[in-house]
Amino acid sequence: METEEMAGDVDHTFDLEKKKYDAEENVKIICLGDSAVGKSKLMERFLMDEYRPQQMSTYALTLYKHTTTLGNKKVLVDFWDTAGQERFQSMHPSYYHNAHACIMVFDVQRKITYKNLSNWFKELREYRPEIPCCVVANKIDADLKITQRSFNFAKKHGLPFYFVSAADGTNVVKMFREMINRALEYKQNPSDFMDEVMQELENFDLEKKEENSDEDGLKAENLELV
């Protein structure tokens, strides 16, 4: 009975997805990175007692819901985690759909996970050319000396970079809080959407502009009537 209800909730969430993300206080943040870089461990460390993942096996993703307050505004954050889908070296387009920020993770003990960042970043930018993104170097607890190195990938793409450890907690909360802020900022000023609008506007011809001005005239008349 309980599982049925839960399943119902999940479907409901998906149905309302579009509407929900249009509300100002809801953001979607996605995680990207290779298998076993510690994406879920990072979520777990940030959410602590709040950690209650919803496994959506049909979608091959894990969803974590988080509520926080910024200023006096309540913000609902949906974190999306890959749940093994990363094995295909690519994510389903719905994973990127309507995302407001992206956290890219690699494992400082495995070079290949760092090298693969460029593939993840490329795919991200195909779907979401402008959303805020950061690079997270995880597992620094295993080798603190690594923090004396600079990793060029983030710098090259102008992305914020964090040395973190999901095990001892170093910089995990800082990184998540900053990304939630950036996701909100992006949502309030979505440059991807603005790009589309600009393109639409450029396609307008002169006639349409005239129609627009007529409309303005009409509005003015109405105003006078009131």
Partner: peptide
């Protein structure tokens, strides 16, 4: 234990 442990590298 510090929840929001920060280290500046």
């Amino acid at each position: 234990f510090v929840y929001d442990l920060e280290v500046d590298f």
